[in-house]
C-alpha cells in the first residue's frame, strides 16, 4: 500500500528559556493512502505536538526537531523552509482544530476567512472563489450557504463553526487532513454528526485522515489503524479490530479496561493508577514502568524496543520473545511510584 506520510524516529525539543524538554521522543508511524489513522493518548502525551510538527506549526523560536524525518510523499517536511511549508499548508495538508469557538477570527466574515487558502494556493477569480466556497459549505452540510458566507463566526453555533472549519480544511482538496480532537468541544449529538461528516468527506475526496483523540469509542467508530501514544512515545500500533481484541501493551489494556461497558453496568470503573511522568522526569527504562501492573526489573533499566508481530507493533518487554517465559502475571506487580 502507498504510504502518504511517514514519521520516522521523530524527536522534538522545547526550550522554555531555562531547560530543554523533549515532549516527543523517537516517534514512528505512517499513514497509508486513503486510510484513517487514529492517534490516541491522554492529554500531554504529545499527540498534538506531533500533528503540529507535521503542519510545521510548532513555535519556531522555542522548538526544534532534533532528529528524525517527516516524509510526505517522500518529501522530508522537517527540512522545509517556512516559505515551502506555506505552499503545503491548507493545500496538500490541512488541519482541523479542537476549539471551533476560538479557531475562527471574530472580525472577518466566514467567506473572507475561507477565501484565504484559495487565494494563497489556487489562481482563481473572485467570483470563482465565492462559488467554490459556497459549494464546499454545502458539501459539509451547512444550510443557506449563500447567506452564511457573509456572516460572522459569532452568528453560528459551535457545530456549524466546526463544519466551517472542516470546509476550510477541505477547500483545496488536500491529500491529508489532520483532525485534532475535532469533536471534544461539541455537544454529544453534534459529535456524531461531525464524525459522520468527516467519514463521508474522506471517502468522497479520496484523502487520508489522521484523527487525534483521547476517546477510544471515536477510534473504534472511525479508524482503520491506531497508534497509541504515551508520554511522548508510540507504545503500540495495530489495526483497529486487532487493538481492541488483543491489546498487547499494558497501557492500552488499561485504556480499554477503563472504558465503561454496557454489560458490566454495576462494576466499579477501572482507572490506571498513578500519573503520567512529566517530560522532565523521564528516566531510562520504560516510560510506563511507574504505573504498569506487570513491571519487572528490566523495565526499569532498559528502554524497550518496538516488537513487531505481523502488523501489530508494541513497545513492551513482555512482547520480547526471550522474556515470554518470565511473564507471570501477579508475581511482579510491584508498582513503583
Amino acid at each position: 500500500m502507498e504510504k502518504i506520510l511517514q514519521v520516522k524516529d521523530l524527536r522534538i525539543q522545547f526550550n522554555n528559556g531555562k531547560e530543554n524538554i523533549q515532549p516527543i521522543r523517537g516517534v514512528y508511524f505512517h499513514v497509508n493512502k486513503g486510510e484513517t489513522l487514529g492517534i490516541v493518548g491522554e492529554s500531554g502525551c504529545g499527540k498534538s505536538v506531533t500533528s503540529l510538527s507535521v503542519m510545521g506549526l510548532l513555535p519556531q523560536k522555542t522548538s526544534e526537531i532534533v532528529s528524525g524525518e517527516i516524509l510526505f510523499n517522500d518529501r522530508d517536511l522537517s527540512r522545509l523552509t517556512e516559505r515551502e511549508f506555506r505552499k503545503l499548508r491548507g493545500n496538500e495538508i490541512s488541519m482541523i482544530f479542537q476549539e471551533p469557538m476560538t479557531s475562527l477570527n471574530p472580525v472577518f466574515t466566514i467567506g473572507k476567512q475561507l477565501s484565504e487558502p484559495l487565494r494563497q494556493h489556487k489562481k482563481m477569480s473572485k467570483s470563482k472563489i465565492r462559488e467554490t466556497i459556497i459549494a464546499v459549505l454545502k458539501q459539509v452540510g451547512l444550510p443557506r450557504a449563500e447567506q452564511i458566507i457573509d456572516e460572522y463566526p459569532h452568528q453560528l453555533s459551535g457545530g456549524m463553526r466546526q463544519r466551517v472549519m472542516i470546509s476550510l480544511a477541505l477547500l483545496c482538496q488536500p491529500k491529508l487532513m489532520i483532525a485534532d480532537e475535532p469533536t471534544t468541544a461539541l455537544d454529544v449529538t453534534i459529535q456524531a454528526q461531525i464524525l459522520e461528516l468527516l467519514k463521508n468527506i474522506k471517502r468522497k475526496n479520496d484523502m487520508s485522515l489522521i484523527l487525534i483523540t483521547h476517546d477510544l469509542s471515536v477510534v473504534a467508530e472511525m479508524c482503520d489503524r491506531v497508534v497509541v501514544m504515551y508520554a511522548g512515545e508510540v507504545v503500540e500500533e495495530a489495526e483497529v479490530n486487532e487493538l481492541f481484541d488483543q491489546p498487547l501493551h499494558p497501557y492500552t489494556q488499561g485504556l480499554i479496561q477503563s472504558l465503561p461497558s454496557n454489560n458490566k453496568r454495576k462494576s466499579k470503573l477501572f482507572s490506571i493508577q498513578g500519573q503520567v511522568p512529566k517530560p522532565s522526569e523521564i528516566k531510562e527504562g520504560c516510560v510506563f514502568a511507574n504505573r504498569c501492573p506487570f513491571v519487572f526489573g528490566k523495565c526499569l533499566t532498559e528502554t524497550p524496543p518496538s516488537f513487531q508481530k505481523g502488523k501489530h507493533i508494541s513497545k513492551c518487554w513482555l512482547q520480547d520473545p526471550e522474556e515470554m517465559e518470565v511473564k507471570r502475571i501477579g508475581e511482579s506487580s510491584t508498582v513503583i511510584s
Binding site: 506549526l57 499548508r89 491548507g90 493545500n91 476560538t102 479557531s103 477570527n105 484565504e116
Partner: peptide, 15 residues
C-alpha cells in the same frame, strides 16, 4: 497567540 491566527497560518497565509 490566538487560535484563529493558528487557523489562518494552517491555511497557508504568509506571516
Amino acid at each position: 497567540r490566538k487560535d484563529y491566527i493558528r487557523t489562518a497560518k494552517a491555511s497557508g497565509v504568509p506571516t
